[in-house]
Simulated scan of single mutants.
Amino acid sequence: MWRLVEYVGACVAPAALLVAADKAVRWWVAPRTPKHTPRAPASRDIARLSSDLTRLYAELDVLRDSKAAARVHRLRATTLAYDDVLESCCTALQVRDGLPPREWTSVERLEVEATLEEAGLRW
Rank of each mutant, 00 (worst) to 15 (best):
R48M: 14
L49C: 13
V29G: 00
D22P: 02
A21N: 06
W28H: 13
V29T: 12
D22V: 04
R39T: 04
D45M: 04
A40R: 08
P31S: 08
K23V: 12
A21L: 15
A47K: 07
R26G: 05
A24D: 14
S51V: 04
A21Q: 03
S50D: 02
P41F: 02
P41N: 01
T33N: 10
V25D: 07
P38G: 02
K23M: 10
S51Q: 14
R32C: 06
V19Q: 00
H36S: 15
W27A: 12
A30C: 00
A20F: 07
P31R: 11
W28C: 11
R32Q: 06
A42V: 12
R48K: 15
P31I: 05
S51I: 03
H36K: 06
A30R: 14
R32G: 02
A20E: 06
W27H: 09
A42S: 09
D45G: 02
R44Y: 06
R32P: 00
D45F: 05
R48G: 07
R32E: 12
T37Q: 13
P38S: 11
D45L: 04
A42I: 08
A24G: 13
R48N: 07
W27C: 10
K35I: 03
V29Y: 10
V29S: 10
A21D: 04
R32L: 12
I46A: 11
V19T: 03
H36R: 14
T33P: 00
A47W: 07
V19H: 05
W28A: 14
V29C: 11
V25R: 13
A30H: 05
R44Q: 10
P31N: 07
A42M: 08
D45Q: 03
P41L: 01
A20T: 06
S43G: 04
A47Y: 11
A47C: 08
R44V: 11
H36N: 15
A47P: 05
V29A: 10
A20R: 04
P34H: 10
P34V: 13
A40L: 08
P38V: 12
R26C: 05
A30G: 00
L49T: 08
T37M: 13
R26W: 05
R44N: 05
A40G: 01
